[in-house]
Amino acid sequence: MKKTITLLAFAAALAAPMAAQAHRAWMAPTSTSLSGNDAWVGFDAGMSNGVFIPDHAAMRMNGLVVTAPDGSAVQPEHLMQGQYRTTFDVHLTQNGTYKVANVMNGIMASYTLNGEQKRWRGSAAEFPSALPQGATNVQATRTSSRIETFVTLNNPTDTVFTNARDGLEMIPVTHPNDLVAGEPATFKLSKDGLPAAGLEVTVARGGLRYRDNPEESTVTTGVDGAFTVTWPEAGLYWLNASVRTAAEGDTIASNASYVAVVEVLP
Score class of each variant (00 low, 15 high):
residue 235 G to D: 12
residue 214 P to F: 03
residue 211 R to L: 05
residue 211 R to K: 14
residue 220 T to I: 15
residue 219 V to L: 07
residue 240 N to E: 05
residue 230 T to W: 05
residue 237 Y to K: 02
residue 221 T to F: 07
residue 224 D to S: 14
residue 226 A to F: 01
residue 227 F to C: 05
residue 218 T to N: 08
residue 214 P to I: 03
residue 211 R to H: 09
residue 239 L to T: 00
residue 237 Y to G: 00
residue 235 G to C: 12
residue 216 E to R: 15
residue 230 T to D: 09
residue 238 W to G: 00
residue 222 G to L: 04
residue 239 L to A: 00
residue 225 G to K: 01
residue 211 R to F: 10
residue 219 V to H: 09
residue 236 L to K: 02
residue 221 T to W: 07
residue 225 G to D: 05
residue 241 A to C: 05
residue 220 T to M: 13
residue 240 N to D: 03
residue 241 A to F: 03
residue 210 Y to L: 13
residue 228 T to G: 09
residue 228 T to H: 10
residue 208 L to D: 14
residue 227 F to W: 07
residue 210 Y to R: 13
residue 240 N to L: 00
residue 220 T to R: 15
residue 230 T to N: 04
residue 230 T to P: 05
residue 217 S to A: 13
residue 230 T to E: 11
residue 218 T to I: 12
residue 228 T to Y: 11
residue 218 T to K: 15
residue 219 V to A: 06
residue 209 R to E: 15
residue 227 F to N: 07
residue 238 W to F: 12
residue 224 D to K: 11
residue 221 T to G: 09
residue 241 A to R: 02
residue 213 N to H: 09
residue 218 T to S: 10
residue 242 S to C: 02
residue 242 S to W: 03
residue 231 W to D: 12
residue 228 T to S: 14
residue 213 N to L: 05
residue 216 E to M: 15
residue 236 L to P: 00
residue 208 L to C: 03
residue 237 Y to Q: 01
residue 214 P to K: 05
